[in-house]
């Protein structure tokens, strides 16, 4: 299994996928505090125009919260790029037929699927760490004194949401024949989760609830509000993984 994980990592680096993802996650990571930092300057720049329209701007105060607000706003973009670039992780192999030689060499399908799953989880975790680390570093540097409540919980919840989408993506990878279908499926899960969120009664059960870590920090929610969503996301991840293994064992390569 380590051999296959090694191969997956080689694929990530040599195809340049990790480089592109790295650049994007670093870019967004820097963007969060940068936007916060630049906000007062931007307002100042536009002050005259805004004043012409009859609005008056007082002193704009920027805190660590401004930076973390950007963090939650930009995270979906980074996640979408990751999904786009990861969608062919299984289907690419079916289309080229590269797994046939691997399977006939005696590597079990379970190990192939789990290796891929671990690599995908690992990639998301690593990139998310970079993204979070950079935002955290700059935010501490600029607004070190500011207290942001429940920040770690919010960050971990968003990570869990990413893990859920990655699991869904891998499950679709075992069912679909091309990456377009995988994207469609994963996208459908993503949007269904958000759309269902408009029904207040369902809200607390949905994995998309995990994206609302900001509410913890600005005081509109307490950790207990998220317990159900966290448990359900965990269960869904496990279900996706088990289904993935079972389906991958039977599918035609």
């Amino acid at each position: 299994m380590t051999a296959f994980i090694k191969k997956e990592c080689m694929e990530l680096t040599r195809t340049g996928r990790l480089l592109i993802l790295g650049i994007i996650f670093i870019f967004f990571g820097i963007l969060n505090p940068a936007i916060a930092k630049l906000t007062p300057w931007l307002y100042e720049l536009l002050q005259d125009q805004i004043a012409d329209s009859g609005l008056n701007i007082g002193k704009v105060s920027v805190t660590a919260m401004t930076s973390w607000t950007q963090f939650y706003k930009n995270a979906p973009m980074a996640l979408i790029v990751l999904i786009l670039l990861t969608s062919s992780v299984l289907t690419g192999e079916y289309q080229k037929g590269t797994l046939i030689q691997v399977v006939t060499k005696g590597l079990s399908r379970k190990k192939i699927f789990l290796s891929k799953l671990l690599t995908v989880y690992g990639t998301w975790t690593l990139l998310y760490l970079v993204y979070t680390g950079i935002t955290l570093g700059y935010t501490m540097y600029f607004w070190g004194g500011d207290e942001v409540s429940y920040l770690p919980l919010g960050i971990v919840m968003y990570w869990l949401f990413g893990m859920f989408l990655m699991s869904a993506l891998m499950l679709f990878g075992t069912v679909c024949d091309n990456s377009g279908q995988v994207l469609l499926g994963t996208g459908a899960v993503f949007f269904a989760s958000i759309l269902l969120g408009y029904i207040p009664k369902l809200q607390k059960f949905l994995p998309s609830k995990l994206m609302e870590g900001l509410n913890l920090s600005n005081g509109t929610a307490i950790p207990a509000d998220f317990t159900t969503a966290i448990i359900i996301a965990f269960l869904l991840i496990i279900i996706c993984d088990i289904l993935g293994v079972v389906i991958f064992d039977r599918r035609k390569l």
Partner: peptide
Amino acid sequence: IGYLPDVPEYYPYMTANEYLNFCGEIT
């Protein structure tokens, strides 16, 4: 069994030696 498909497909980013190494490791 050793199997040679009609159109064998490989990971294009590997060298021949790396591919054999990969095959050896998974076996």
